[in-house]
Design a binder for these strands. Sequence first.
DNA 1: TTGTACGCGTTATCAC
DNA 2: GTGATAACGCGTACAA
Lengths: 333, 333
Amino acid sequence: MVTIRDVAKHAGVSPATVSRVVNGLVGYSEETRRRVEEAVTSLNYETDFMARGLKTRQTSVIGLLAPMVSDALASEVMRGVEEAAREQGYAVMLGRTGLQSIFIDGYLRTLRTYRAAGVILISAVITQETRQILGPNIPIISVAISDRSGSPSVSIDDERAAYDATRYLLSLGHRRIGLLAGDPASVFVAHPRQRGYERAMAEAGHPPVVAHGTFFYDSGAPGLDELLRQDPDLTAIFAVSDEMAAAAVNELQERGRRVPDDVSVLGFDNTSTAQHVHPPLSTVAQPLEEMGRAAVRKLLRARNLGPRIVPHSIIARGSTGPPKNQHQPSQEL
Amino acid sequence: MVTIRDVAKHAGVSPATVSRVVNGLVGYSEETRRRVEEAVTSLNYETDFMARGLKTRQTSVIGLLAPMVSDALASEVMRGVEEAAREQGYAVMLGRTGLQSIFIDGYLRTLRTYRAAGVILISAVITQETRQILGPNIPIISVAISDRSGSPSVSIDDERAAYDATRYLLSLGHRRIGLLAGDPASVFVAHPRQRGYERAMAEAGHPPVVAHGTFFYDSGAPGLDELLRQDPDLTAIFAVSDEMAAAAVNELQERGRRVPDDVSVLGFDNTSTAQHVHPPLSTVAQPLEEMGRAAVRKLLRARNLGPRIVPHSIIARGSTGPPKNQHQPSQEL
DNA sequence: TTGTACGCGTTATCAC
DNA sequence: GTGATAACGCGTACAA
């Protein structure tokens, strides 16, 4: 292992000077810089992050905590985080918090003792406790969750997005629209989306039809069943996750209903799942990868005060279309 | 920040003793242990990983490198790695290598200066260069790739799995089976799978029909098109990734062919994608999560010499069935 | 069990 | 302005 003192000896200067050159500080002549750099490359010197971190009480590590490291949404955000971090010279430390944030405390402690430069939380809110464990020196930011506490965050406006999505279905002519909502326990995403749907339906004067799922694929079919029991004549299903929407599409076809001819289905998140079903899902897009990148930038810029809302958009693919109106013939013509 | 010396003072012992107690070594009385532990909890002491790493030249960090952090296969492996690492008290540092392993060198260097305890490579082979950058002290292991170089690895026998999968289709009665193969450039997975298919077909006396894709969803439809052009009467498609298989299912249905009644489709990997299409994909399962866990264990046990082959299995879901045999009526009855 | 040198980069202090 | 010296950060390991 070649140390800073080896380089200093080779270049005929002191370790302090080498340090200054390596870190691009001031206080040396052009000639010294050249000699030091020559020594660095010829000896293949690399700064020891441990030693540096011990002294500076900072490492170039960003902690990334996701409830499931394997779900499509988290994966997209992770990709953005990883790219932005690498570009800025940071490494990413990965942790899974579990659905009920079981492991989060342990990870935060680890990140603290590793003197992480910051922490990014996917789909989880920043609690008082979180902040406390992390201490005052490590910034934290949440991504892809509507956290109204004013903590640093990057997200879309979930209420507005669901409102817009419902309006989109209304604009296609649908009146009987069912909501495949999220787990009411995970109130921070599920609730705003449900509110947005309900607001749009109320404004249009149509009764809401709601069933609850878990966001995951498996809950899509039972949820659809529940919705159709409430109203067998639904012409559109709005699911608050692509996974549930995909399950709904498949289950509808299983029951002999065509998508979108008989029933339109609209998803949420625009993950890769949306494109893997047939017909491909129309969905509400969150710019997930960009949100990951934005989170890194915000974290490192240290002006990460308060929430940042990024724009959502609605992507129309094959799973949505006008209703056939067979059950409500020319009601409004 | 409370240091080991603070604890020592509080407990009336030396820093060295505190260190031994904290690390569960021997050489202190029961009474001292009690006093030290009391001091640790009352002062809320936590070991500084930087200082420890500086001295021991080791940190509890495992590097995890994947070509795409967001694909379904890597995600499953990552989940296993994360879980096993956490249980053993290790943190996971994540890196994306890019499809052509563009960033791998940079990450390896970073991992070296962080004195990682080991490196796990998903879907990439360990080259001479890789080993050289990492140095002799950091073990490395590859996962989910048939690397015949004898380097430490955890994978299925891809050739055998593809052979078995093809035999499975043959046993259903299929004779005209097309292979949607992988990118021939990524020779380490694509090639063995193709060989397994070709061996099974040769043994059965049927001509192979092969088209190449990229493993990704988008290449499925063009690949299918290519296969059907070579033989319009194929009754089964074996795709070497679930994504391509999913695309094939969707494209077949788009063309008015029923799955599995007209054409059976078999996937590979058993990722979540397999369950998101309709009908759900029959597929060759790799125990991806378990492979991730095994990689961590193997890495830390330091008896990680040579490859380890884990068993594959074939999961029959809705996308495969016997051929209708309309083109080859009762040939063997 | 304890004292203490050590690992290595950084930075404050000092000399030229 | 240039550069050197040395103390420092904190846990570990070896000699005592």
